[in-house]
Design a protein around this nucleic acid. Sequence first.
DNA 1: CTATCATTCAAACGCTTGTTTGGTTTTTCG
DNA 2: CGAAAAACCAAACAAGCGTTTGAATGATAG
Lengths: 205, 205
Amino acid sequence: MEFPHFSTKERILGAAEELFARNGFAGASLRELTSAAKVNLAAVNYHFGSKDNLVNEVFRRRLDELSAQRLDALAQVLATAQPSLEDLLAAFIHPALALSLDKSGGATFVRVLARAYAEHNERLRKFLSENYGHVLKEFASAFGAQLPHLDKEELYWRIDIIAGALTYAMADFGVIKRRSSMSEQVHRERAAEHLIRFAAAGLRA
Amino acid sequence: MEFPHFSTKERILGAAEELFARNGFAGASLRELTSAAKVNLAAVNYHFGSKDNLVNEVFRRRLDELSAQRLDALAQVLATAQPSLEDLLAAFIHPALALSLDKSGGATFVRVLARAYAEHNERLRKFLSENYGHVLKEFASAFGAQLPHLDKEELYWRIDIIAGALTYAMADFGVIKRRSSMSEQVHRERAAEHLIRFAAAGLRA
DNA sequence: CTATCATTCAAACGCTTGTTTGGTTTTTCG
DNA sequence: CGAAAAACCAAACAAGCGTTTGAATGATAG
């Protein structure tokens, strides 16, 4: 349901997001993709050069803003007198939650993000690490300052677990299906609450 | 490095595990796979019927034993007078840890397992749910008995998060690379300790 | 030894993949 | 308007895919 008044590039990005989330990067073919976007098959290579670069651009479109929001929220928390662990976690999680509630494909993109975690795609990992790795680094050092009782190794273990759990929860993986009576928004907000409480307790343990 | 004295079927299963972990199910081709296993291209279809069924058999080879070990450990814990939350979690996690320390491909298979979580492959999910879904159900009800203060919805949320975190941690996903001075075994044992403490704290919160 | 069955193999099948081509249409702008 | 640039499109390309075939080889049992 990509509306025809969007530009060709936007329709391709939207359809790519949808199909990457559903079928993975290798599993989504350009013919399927261009057909869903209602554009010519050659349009992907014309506008994006290659399928690989289209994948990059799908991430760039969302991650630029998500990373900026996370860093903003982090800076805001660090500026307060007594930042709590929950505040730091919220600075990381709430922007992703907001993204997942975005009307135009945000929830879909979060599923794409989880795919990227799961696929050990070397090319994609390099792209993400080069362009957005500094965000994770800043959060790691903020957590470290809050948890002096943890040595570096333990801290990294726990952050790793949290990042994985966050990805899964946000992407709606696993066995849980929300009650149909509950709206998507309430569903995800509760997920974030649970995750923050859960993660803070685990980090302090 | 599949040794030639293994049977054709075993060499195929070993190479499939390796390649599925590295490249995903769609991303691993039968030509690559049979070449790594040093068998003829047609051997997969001869011995397994199809690539889809080969995927099933890769899971069956490991999950039969893993599920049995988890259920055994769970029954043992439930038989004790005062089973703790940590005991229940250990019953779920330790068999997976042992598998990941198995000399012949266990660690690789855990990565395959994480792939299965991430890929929304309907066919594979159905196979896994039909054959191994009862294990998760039994653990869920055991957790529920331990946590009467949580309603069903909250409990499921938290189990979901734990299952995701476990999968990630065990599969060595995320940013952490172990210190090269540390053995694989110590690395994974610490992961399990952290995960159990983390998960128990989160469940009780 | 021979007949029988299971296994291996090279080759080919039909199909889908990402990408490129060359020409046509549409848009931009002096 | 008219020329240059950008965008679009049908068609074809080479390469790779899972699968099938039919003959060659290996092992098994009468």
